[in-house]
Write a protein that binds this DNA or RNA. Structure first.
Lengths: 238, 238
DNA sequence: ATAAAATACTTGTATTTACAAGTAAAATAT
DNA sequence: ATATTTTACTTGTAAATACAAGTATTTTAT
């Protein structure tokens, strides 16, 4: 069930603390146990514990302060790697729904795909899907996903409603997103995007093209995302 | 001159390698010297060297591959922390200019500033400036900067033309950007932004609101950036 | 009561040592 | 010649140890 076995120790502790933070066991502004306490608690040495904390800090879950401790933040990191933050009110317990526009189907790659593809990817074909994601019943993201069909049995027949694509890839295929790159533009809404996102034609829309690197060698996830940023902003740390 | 003295060793090596990468001594795709070679070259032990490389990897300058080595990338991290990548052609030797719209002046903070401010910041007043940044003579960024006036003597009289604000802060005040957060939206261009960015009114513009954390406790940099993304995209790694 | 100094914490830096695991090239056997 | 195995590299993980430096509290002196 849990993917916690046969992981390196520092990674195990990272996952434990990350879970505790995202589940709210540690709250915004709380101090994490000190490094020495974590050593005792989990039977590790300080360099190992420090490696976990260092990764957490890099991922924005904590900030470390010499002489003081590690302070918890748990704002971002929802909805895939993207996160939204309300411009008017706080985020709060968001009511997020996913609606499938085009169910996962196997197609061949477009010739002028937004990112260069490897030979293996081209030969494998492409799993294509379109989803609309709503926050409090307001359409926020129109998301077109592309995945190379490399060792993903039965993926086209899975249920994606109200479930994160990333969660499914993680739980069923042990695929983790390690990072990636993206290009961001502001463009006028096309007829299709404007109708899906409940906007007028030519209203500004945020367009992201992203390539995500996974823990599986040669397997990347691609997506083209159109965002309605009228009421919400894209939030990010760097 | 060089700020390399009395830095920790791992930081020193980080700065050296970063410089070599950005100056093109190591080229895209090159392998960095192995960890053991770097140990010998710079008289450090492997954990120290590994810490430098780990930071470089986190910052996107290299990717590490077990059994192979560390591969150099030197795309991003220009123009402040932002970076652009051409949508039509490659980036190449970009011809970047900065034009001052409003010279640095000391003002008081706006009451409904885009980020919450500390008491110290409010009391210190605000150094305000507006700049326009052009790539190949095309206006790309209209950049409004806000800095709390905390220990920054003579900053309002400095030359900012064609020089990065970050470089000046780094060289003259030893201020380094450690990270930050940002909100991104697509909005219609106002009259002012459209004229500055050579766009028609109501054309889509990318709007960033960012808060940057520095190595100086309590000192943050804020900026509101309007981007013309007609020909260029914002590029980022995550 | 107030201010200064000592203290007990915290994280930061750095060395040394050892073995595991992935990669690529060289040596060997077929 | 080709395939296989070995070898020599690379980075990854992990422990044990030591001291430096920043922070906050407690104690002490005024």
């Amino acid at each position: 069930m849990t993917p916690s076995r046969n992981l390196p120790q520092h990674r195990r502790l990272y996952e434990i603390l990350r879970k505790h933070i995202t589940e709210g066991i540690y709250k915004e502004g709380d101090l994490l146990p000190s490094e020495n306490e974590l050593c005792q608690l989990y039977g590790m040495t300080r360099p190992t514990v420090r490696q976990s904390l260092s990764t957490l800090a890099n991922d924005g879950y904590i900030t470390k302060h010499q002489g003081k401790g590690s302070i918890v933040h748990h704002l971002p990191r929802e909805i895939g790697i993207l996160s939204v933050s309300g411009t008017t009110s706080a985020v709060g317990n968001r009511n997020l729904k996913t609606r499938i526009i085009v169910k996962p189907v196997l197609i061949s790659w477009n010739n002028d795909f937004m990112f260069p593809l490897s030979q293996l990817e081209k030969e494998s074909g492409c799993i294509y899907m379109e989803r609309l994601r709503l926050l409090d019943d307001i359409p926020i993201f129109y998301d077109i996903s592309y995945i190379a069909n490399i060792n993903l049995p039965r993926i086209t027949s899975r249920q994606f409603e109200n479930r994160s694509l990333f969660k499914i890839l993680r739980e069923h295929y042990h695929i983790e997103i390690k990072g990636g790159e993206q290009r961001i533009k502001a463009i006028p809404a096309s007829l299709k995007t404007s109708s899906l996102l409940h906007l007028k034609k030519n209203q500004p829309v945020l367009h992201l093209e992203r390539k995500m690197v996974t823990n599986v060698n040669g397997l990347f996830l691609y997506s083209s995302i159109y965002c309605n940023t009228e009421k919400y902003s894209i939030f990010g740390r760097f």
